[in-house]
């Protein structure tokens, strides 16, 4: 599947660009734009996280923290200190990257479940700080009045404009991720996933690559967080708790670990399902859990690759019978 996607990669990007441009023609309701924008924001985080999980084989349950750091850097710098908008976003991205380096350097020496705990603990600490450093963050009441982004005279102050803004970020970040994966770095990452020891013995500095990809995935999350802050104009700690970290890793798995387009599907399907299931009212959590379990039990390769494989199996069976 991966190979197949690679051949048609450029076609896929073309289609994605067309769909992004065309969607506003068909969608009118404000609600659907909000859902689409949230999907876009999640996709940014998931693409970055998938580089880490799917290609470097490292699990992080702390990405809500990086997403949150992006939001809070943007929010605090622009609201409290009157920073210009885009530089604030850039500072947020670099600062988040630095934090990720500091935490990633010792963490990524940990293995398996120890790494899960370290990233989880880090996420919880950052979430507590968001609530308690009231003089900067506004505490649990949140930070209000974050200005919308603007380029020249164009202010991204409604859902449609933000749709174009967010999805152009998605488009270019996915393109960047694709190019990265097809480069020397990408091959090294794939080797690490195959076997860390083997990669190491072939001269790939695995520790170095793992930290770098961790920092990169944190920066993806941070940019998404900044966009979120400027889009919604209000942030509070509850958006960045442990559940968000779990949610994005779930999207990576459901979409398919190590599949770039799977990230888009995972974020899309789960965000959409989670919204759609609100009609189930109090059964919402159960329904979401059941959906998740069904996918993990029956399609562990992820929805896209999983269904493709099922299809392939049926096709080969038909051929055999013939």
């Amino acid at each position: 599947m991966d190979l197949l996607l690679k051949q048609k990669d450029n076609l896929c990007f073309g289609i994605l660009a067309l769909v992004i441009v065309a969607i506003p023609v068909f969608v009118e309701s404000k609600y659907y734009f909000i859902v689409l924008n949230v999907i876009g924001l999640n996709t940014l985080v998931v693409v970055g996280l998938n580089l880490l999980i799917g290609f470097a084989g490292q699990i992080s349950l702390g990405h809500a923290a990086f997403y949150g750091l992006g939001s809070y850097f943007s929010g605090i710098l622009t609201v409290n200190y009157g920073f210009p908008l885009w530089p604030a976003m850039l500072v947020g991205m670099l600062a988040t990257g630095a934090v990720a380096y500091l935490i990633g350097y010792p963490s990524l020496k940990l293995r398996g479940n120890y790494l899960v705990m370290a990233t989880l603990g880090f996420g919880i600490i950052i979430n507590i700080l968001m609530g308690e450093l009231e003089q900067f963050t506004g505490g649990h009441d949140g930070l209000m009045g974050i200005p919308p982004l603007a380029i020249g005279g164009l202010t991204f102050d409604d859902d449609l404009k933000n749709f174009y803004l967010i999805w152009s970020f998605v488009f270019f970040f996915m393109l960047a991720a694709r190019n990265l994966l097809n480069s020397r770095v990408g091959r090294a990452l794939r080797a690490i996933k195959g076997s860390e020891v083997a990669a190491n013995s072939l001269g790939v500095n695995t520790a170095d690559y793992k930290v770098k990809i961790f920092v990169l995935s944190a920066m993806f999350a941070s940019v998404s967080g900044s966009l979120y802050a400027h889009y919604i104009t209000f942030i509070s700690p509850s958006s960045y708790d442990f559940h968000y970290s779990i949610q994005v890793v779930t999207m990576v798995i459901v979409g398919g670990m190590g599949s770039l387009w799977g990230s888009l599907f995972g974020a899309g399907i789960l965000t959409f399902i989670s919204e759609a299931l609100h009609i189930a009212k109090q059964y919402h959590i159960i329904a979401y859990g059941v959906f998740l379990c069904l996918v993990l039990v029956f399609l562990p390769e992820g929805i896209v690759v999983g269904i493709y494989n099922l299809f392939l199996k049926r096709k080969t069976r038909k051929l055999i019978i013939k």
Binding site: T250, I285, V290, L296, P300
Partner: peptide, 26 residues
């Protein structure tokens, strides 16, 4: 579960705990 990969099983337990928590809430 069709896959015995650790990360899949871990997230399966997360899915199961959502079902249990949702049921408890109801």
């Amino acid at each position: 579960a069709r896959s015995k990969e650790i990360i899949i099983l871990i997230f399966l337990t997360i899915g199961l705990s959502e079902i249990l928590r949702g049921t408890a809430q109801v």
